[in-house]
Computed example of a mutant assay.
Amino acid sequence: MNRFHVHLNVADLASSIRFYTALFGAEPTVRKDDYAKWMVEDPRVNFAISSTGREAGIDHLGIQADSDEALAALGQRLDAAGGALVPEEATVCCYARSDKLWTEDPQGTRWETFHTLGEATTYYAGEAPCATNGTTCSPDLRVVKPKVAKGASCCAADSGCC
């Protein structure tokens, strides 16, 4: 079963960890100097916070797929919804290795669909410098060109991302 994902940028990580630990009734499942994540079962959500220098507030929303097939199905639904898709394969972000598809809704809210492949030792590995500002994992979709062909495994060849 897929899981809803929320990622917030916070100004004070320690006080935010205290607040969300009380709210969820559980300690974070991942806790680093600049990041914390709760894998909550009720409601089923992957809730993450980070203090990486970005403006406080919602960074992005998303859906965590539980398999490659579920991620592909979500990609087809995003494509049908009309959003431009920006894929990232085997990326390191938020102390995890994942395959991802990024898009924006009509209001400009960034959406991340992803399948986690395993843990990582760093918050951000910086494999795609054209996609990010170096302090975050989520790409600036105004800068990165979306994929143009269905079934492509990466962003447009002339974008410099891959």
Rank of each mutant, 00 (worst) to 15 (best):
H7T: 06
E27H: 11
H60K: 07
D68Y: 04
G53F: 04
H5F: 10
A156H: 05
V45P: 03
T21N: 12
T91N: 02
C162Q: 12
A65T: 08
L8E: 00
A14Y: 00
E69K: 09
D12Q: 07
A72K: 09
E104I: 01
D59N: 12
E27Q: 13
A152M: 08
I49G: 03
T122E: 15
Q76L: 10
Q107R: 09
S159V: 04
T109F: 08
E119W: 09
R3F: 00
C161L: 01
D42I: 02
C154F: 05
D68L: 10
S159G: 14
R54G: 13
R97M: 10
Y124W: 15
Y123E: 08
V40D: 02
S67W: 01
E69Q: 14
T109A: 10
L141N: 13
E27T: 07
D42C: 04
L74M: 14
T91D: 02
V30C: 05
F19I: 15
A36W: 03
A48C: 12
K37G: 05
S159I: 07
C93L: 13
S67C: 12
V10F: 08
D158V: 04
D66C: 08
E127S: 05
L8Q: 04
I58H: 06
C154Q: 13
D59P: 00
L101R: 09
R77K: 09
G82M: 06
D99K: 09
F4L: 15
L13Y: 05
G62I: 02
D79C: 07
E112G: 02
L141Y: 12
K32A: 14
C137Y: 03
D12Y: 00
T121M: 06
P106D: 04
S153T: 08
A14N: 10
M39V: 08
E119A: 15
T21D: 07
G160S: 11
D140Y: 03
D105A: 10
G134Q: 13
H115I: 13
G118S: 07
F24L: 14
T21M: 11
T116E: 14
N9D: 07
G134V: 08
Q107E: 15
R31V: 12
C94K: 00
G25W: 04
K150H: 13
A120D: 11
S50V: 08
P139C: 08
C162P: 08
D105V: 03
I58D: 10
R110E: 01
V144M: 11
G134H: 11
A96I: 10
A84T: 06
S138I: 00
K37H: 01
A81S: 13
R142G: 11
G118Y: 09
P146R: 05
S98I: 04
